[in-house]
Amino acid sequence: MDPIAGTPPLALSREARCVRDLLWRCDLPVVAHVPAVLEALARRGFAESTAGLLVRSMVGPDEDVLVVVPRTARVEIRVSYLVAPEARAARARALARLLAECCGEAEAAT
């Protein structure tokens, strides 16, 4: 269990095209929970800036972006470039914890 969020952690890794710790990846455990996870993100202040329904982009209060592929439940965490390079990994971990919380809520709601 994640010691902070109290929910199962999501495996977090750098995206293949990650440069300077800006792009990270995790995969939501249940594809069917994607809509509920997006709703939970919205409750936490994330605003949707989606170009199409095939990919959903959620922009956080600190300008980090979570790009979700509903069909596969892949999530790309785009840490804001305003975050200092040495702090980006920690920010990505925090966002992954937040996603884990949202997954927990989605799980509880079903």
């Binding site: 995206e15 293949a16 095209r17 170009a51 990919v55 790009v67 596969t72 790309e76």
Partner: peptide, 16 residues
């Protein structure tokens, strides 16, 4: 191009 091919946008629209 490499970045687009590996992006979630590509995965969502075209596939992995």
């Amino acid at each position: 191009f490499g970045g687009i091919l590996l992006s979630p946008e590509w995965e969502g629209m075209v596939g992995t």
